[in-house]
């Protein structure tokens, strides 16, 4: 019995807000993302090559010099742009926009031209330079909901697609729409300061919708016209007093 046709276009439009005033750069989201999405650790050699596989990274910027120095954190993940630059350039449709505003990566379709990565202004796409190395006992930890990616494939933040689908399935089983807060990507769920919020921006009562329409909300690289689904909430005042 599924009374709700949740496939209907525009029922959901997933969005995230990042409160820069709350983020304290602890990095819990980074590891949560790695744990949830079977992201391999690349190891020392790969890191030396300058590679990393952080679907969610916390960018750190320094302003000023001692003693008036300010360090700022900027969590950066796939922005799930409405007009995503990565989609149009993929020669095989391995990345496309689904009807819930998600920018989806089809691993099996990807041939690895890496064009999408070049065209992403946020540089949030990552490439499997080698086969992931989950040897021995570490396999036990792998999340069965998330497929492993072989070498030669682009990947990126999915807004924890598997959680969204589970949330919708559960809601459908109960014959209702997804409630605000039902679905939380791993990073949002773990964020100790509550800097991250996730929800359906089409629902005007959802927290994410309210935050995204508050005066503090901005999009990164707005001038590029990518219309990201991730909104950043600007920091506070310039000084304390």
């Amino acid at each position: 019995m599924k009374s709700f046709n949740y496939k209907k276009h525009n029922d959901y439009k997933w969005a995230m807000t990042v409160d820069l005033d709350r983020c304290d750069g602890c990095g819990a989201c980074v590891v949560a993302c790695q744990a949830e999405n079977n992201i391999p650790s690349l190891g020392v050699e790969q890191t030396q090559e300058g590679r990393n596989m952080l679907w969610l990274r916390i960018e750190r910027y320094i302003e000023g010099s001692y003693p008036d120095v300010k360090v700022r954190f900027l969590p950066m993940m796939c922005q799930h742009c409405d007009t995503a630059p990565c989609e149009s350039v993929c020669p095989v449709y391995a990345t496309y926009q689904n009807n819930e505003g998600l920018n989806v990566q089809v691993y099996n379709r990807c041939v690895g031209t890496r064009f999408c990565g070049n065209n992403c202004p946020y540089s949030v796409r990552y490439f499997n330079w080698y086969d992931p190395d989950f040897e021995g006992k570490e396999k036990n930890q792998l999340n069965p909901d998330v497929s492993l990616r072989e070498k030669g494939i682009m990947e990126k933040c999915t807004f924890c697609m598997q959680r969204i689908r589970r949330g919708k399935d559960n809601a459908a089983d109960e014959g209702r729409e997804v409630h605000d807060g039902d679905i939380k990507p791993a990073c949002v769920q773990t964020c100790p300061t509550g800097a991250l919020e996730f929800g359906n921006i089409n629902d005007h009562h959802s927290r994410v919708s309210k935050l995204a329409h508050s005066g503090r909300a901005i999009s990164l690289f707005e001038e590029k016209g990518t219309h990201p689904s991730v909104k950043y909430l600007k920091g506070g005042t310039a000084d304390v007093f």
Binding site: V89, G112, R114, G152, I153
Partner: peptide, 25 residues
């Protein structure tokens, strides 16, 4: 390309899934 063995995805080959290359690219 990352996956040489899948490079034929880039050719407009008729296939069961009716998937064509992306001519926008």
């Amino acid at each position: 390309v990352g996956r040489l063995w899948r490079v034929y995805y880039m050719f407009p080959l008729p296939n069961q899934r009716e998937l064509w290359p992306n001519f926008k690219s």
